[in-house]
């Protein structure tokens, strides 16, 4: 039962720009073990003088890809670890990681559904792992993703989400852009609120499993809103991203 958790040195094998501020890094792990959608890896950076900084990043890739994981990392302007990834890390670099970690904010097909996923910004990453996992599941439970971003260009995995939704009538993606919207935008244009949550609940169907991830304030508002709309608190799982990275 005990799963020893040890640091290991991974190798960056691919770097993929998702948006202006968000990039995905593929890490090849010498001691890879299958993860569950929603889990994360801890990343630890060490400077020459021994100074260390550590952060957690959600796994974006589904467990079916063995030997490696994708971490999707948003660059935080005054952060310490994310700028290192965006400005310095290159293919071939080594990154010390520990994981996979998490037993609470996880979903696997055996849990069933329907799934109601609520994401704010880079909070979409662990939920994307869930949707990618779900895409190859059989049966596939209905799923709704309510996804808040600032601008159209900030929407991470935009094309992939559109493709997933187009190919699967059981997946509905509801988007809101809170700062600016492109011409012809038919989605929402404000912060997540009651009407949006109501629409998401209606689209998901009865007794959904709810996963909410993003900045703390968004998570609080969405969780409280869903509970007020009748979702049992025990069915709501949250992962709050802090202000620091």
């Amino acid at each position: 039962m005990p799963e020893p958790l040890a640091w290991q040195i991974s190798t960056v094998t691919a770097i993929r720009v998702e948006t202006a501020e968000v990039t995905s890094f593929t890490l090849e792990l010498p001691s890879w073990r299958p993860h569950r959608a929603g889990q994360h890896y801890d990343v630890r950076l060490t400077a020459a003088d021994g100074y260390q900084a550590q952060r957690s990043y959600s796994i974006a890739s589904p467990p079916s890809r063995s030997g490696e994981v994708d971490l999707t990392i948003e660059k935080i302007a005054d952060g310490e670890v994310s700028p290192y990834f965006h400005d310095t890390v290159a293919v071939g670099d080594k990154v010390e990681v520990r994981g996979p970690i998490g037993g609470y904010f996880v979903w696997e097909p055996a849990f069933g559904g329907p799934l109601l996923l609520v994401a704010g910004g880079s909070g979409v990453v662990p939920l994307m792992a869930m949707l990618r996992e779900r895409a190859s599941a059989d049966p596939r439970p209905p799923a709704v993703l309510l996804y808040s971003s600032r601008n159209f260009d900030d929407v991470i995995y935009r094309d992939e989400l559109a493709a997933l939704a187009a190919a699967d009538t059981g997946l509905r993606v509801i988007q809101t852009l809170t700062r600016s919207q492109p011409a012809g935008w038919t989605g929402y244009d404000r912060r997540i609120d009651r009407p949006m949550l109501s629409e998401a609940i209606a689209a998901a169907g009865p007794a959904p499993l709810v996963y909410i991830c993003g900045p703390t304030l968004l998570v609080e508002a969405a969780a409280n809103g869903l509970v007020e709309l009748g979702v049992p608190p025990a069915q709501v799982r949250t992962e709050r991203f802090g202000p620091t990275s």
């Binding site: 957690s56 520990r98 970690i101 703390t216 991203f241 802090g242 202000p243």
Partner: peptide, 20 residues
């Protein structure tokens, strides 16, 4: 903004207790 959930220290807890 200061408040996270225990997921944020899941690694620390696993390291200290020996399991998730």
């Amino acid at each position: 903004p200061m408040m996270l959930d225990a997921n944020a220290v899941a690694g620390e807890l696993a390291e200290l207790f020996g399991f998730e």
